[in-house]
Amino acid sequence: MTGSGLKHRVARLRQAYAPHEHRPLGGYLAAMGTYATVTASLVGLVRATGRPVPQRPAPADVVLLCVATHKLSRLLSKDAVTSPLRAPFTRYDRPIGSGEVMEQVRDQGSPTRHAVGELLSCPFCLAVWVATGLTGGLVLAPRLTRMVATALTAVAASDFLQMGYAVAQRAAEGGHHGQ
Rank of each mutant, 00 (worst) to 15 (best):
P54R: 03
V46G: 08
A16I: 02
R91Q: 09
G136K: 07
C122I: 00
E118V: 00
A60I: 02
G3R: 15
A18Y: 03
A166N: 12
G136T: 02
Y17A: 00
T37M: 10
T135K: 00
L75A: 10
C125G: 10
P123Y: 04
V81L: 13
H22Y: 12
L120C: 00
T49M: 05
G44R: 14
V46T: 15
R51I: 08
R143C: 05
L152S: 06
S110A: 00
H177S: 14
R91W: 00
A151E: 13
P111K: 00
S98D: 13
A115W: 01
R91A: 13
L42E: 04
L85T: 05
D61Y: 05
T112P: 06
A166H: 15
A40I: 15
L25W: 11
V148R: 07
T82V: 06
R23C: 12
R56C: 01
L42A: 15
G33L: 06
V63K: 15
S41Q: 11
Q179L: 04
L144Q: 12
M102Q: 11
T69N: 03
A58D: 15
P95R: 09
T132S: 13
D79C: 07
C122T: 01
D79E: 03
A31Q: 06
L119H: 00
Y165K: 11
L140K: 05
P88H: 07
E21I: 12
H114A: 06
K71Q: 13
